[in-house]
């Protein structure tokens, strides 16, 4: 047993020797994971250029289809007419009012949804009885299009802002609450155990261990919650139109339809899309990337 006699002689020396320390340092150097960051120009080339090319191609195809005059002008306006409408709306300042009306509602509705959904999610995640009682309903509500709530809300609240906010809440709350629940469910059970073994009280464990550990799932829920807020708001604004409700993007879209003004309709759709994507790219994507990168979970650039 040649191998064993070597280890045995090593063990004869009391305490770690210089040699053992060197081995330890060598292991540290060898085993430390190396993080490879792609250079900025490469990330720009793979992340920013392709979507721009896709959009340009889309507009080119659109222009060709329009030029070939397969459909009449009132069905398929030229890109120029649509972008012209958007440009004019901005030049007149009207676009800012319309977008602000919708965004301020969506943001306020989203924040309300966060305030309602966070304690709800915590309750469902931590109290088994509550989970078995309303957990399935909460999941089911996620697949119910929130536009279905518009008629009910109009009957309950009339054509007021309450109707709009109700629909937004019904759209966003289930997503945010479910995100928090799955975030908490995915916390490795060892973490709260370690916390308890270190003497964490229940509130310390919730604040310092469970909530930060559930953050990636919660952020995912928030992101989805925003998307649902935005589309619920649009559904509500398109269906429930009234001078008392102000003039948002949904009402703008609706007006385009009533006037058979296709460039306006397409301009409205484009603006709705741009705002939805813009908020995600400006707020949710960076927050999510930061959280995931700090935990070594980020994939891709």
């Amino acid at each position: 047993m040649a191998a064993e006699s070597t280890t045995a002689t090593d063990e004869e020396r009391p305490g770690p020797t210089d040699d053992a320390i060197d081995v330890g340092r060598g292991l540290d150097a060898l085993d430390t994971p190396t993080e490879q960051r792609t250079p900025l120009w490469k990330r720009f080339l793979t992340g920013v250029v392709p979507p721009i090319v896709a959009v340009v191609l889309f507009v080119v195809v659109w222009q060709i289809l329009w030029a070939s005059a397969i459909w009449p002008e009132f069905k398929l306006p030229s890109p120029e007419a649509v972008f012209g409408t958007i440009g004019q709306d901005f030049a007149e300042g009207r676009a800012f009012d319309i977008i602000w009306t919708s965004i301020s509602r969506a943001v306020l509705g989203f924040l309300l949804a966060v305030v309602v959904a966070t304690p709800l999610g915590l309750l469902v995640a931590t109290v088994p009885l509550v989970r078995s009682a309303i957990g399935p309903i909460l999941t089911g509500l996620q697949s119910l299009p929130s536009v279905a709530w518009v008629p009910a809300a109009v009957l309950w609240f009339g054509l007021t802002d309450a109707t709009i906010y109700f629909v937004v809440l019904m759209g966003a709350v289930p997503s945010i609450a479910n995100g928090l629940v799955s975030g908490i469910d995915q916390v490795p059970p060892l973490l709260p155990r370690v916390g308890f073994a270190m003497g964490a009280s229940r509130s310390q464990s919730a604040r310092l261990i469970m909530l930060p550990a559930a953050l990636p799932g919660f952020l995912g829920g928030l992101k989805q919650g925003w998307a649902f807020s935005w589309r619920s708001l649009m559904a509500a604004e398109i269906i429930a139109t009234s001078p008392s409700l102000g003039f948002g993007l949904g009402a703008y879209l609706n007006e385009g339809q009533s006037l058979s003004d296709m460039p306006s309709v397409m301009a409205a759709i484009l603006l709705i899309l741009i705002v939805g994507i813009g908020v995600e790219l400006l707020f949710f994507r960076p927050a999510e990337l930061r959280v995931l990168r700090a935990r070594g979970l980020a994939t891709g650039p």
Partner: peptide, 18 residues
């Protein structure tokens, strides 16, 4: 079972913080 969102120093500090 280190907390992945804390750096090594803060992980060691955690029981003292508690």
């Amino acid at each position: 079972a280190l907390l992945p969102w804390l750096d090594a120093g803060r992980n060691v500090e955690l029981p003292l913080r508690l």
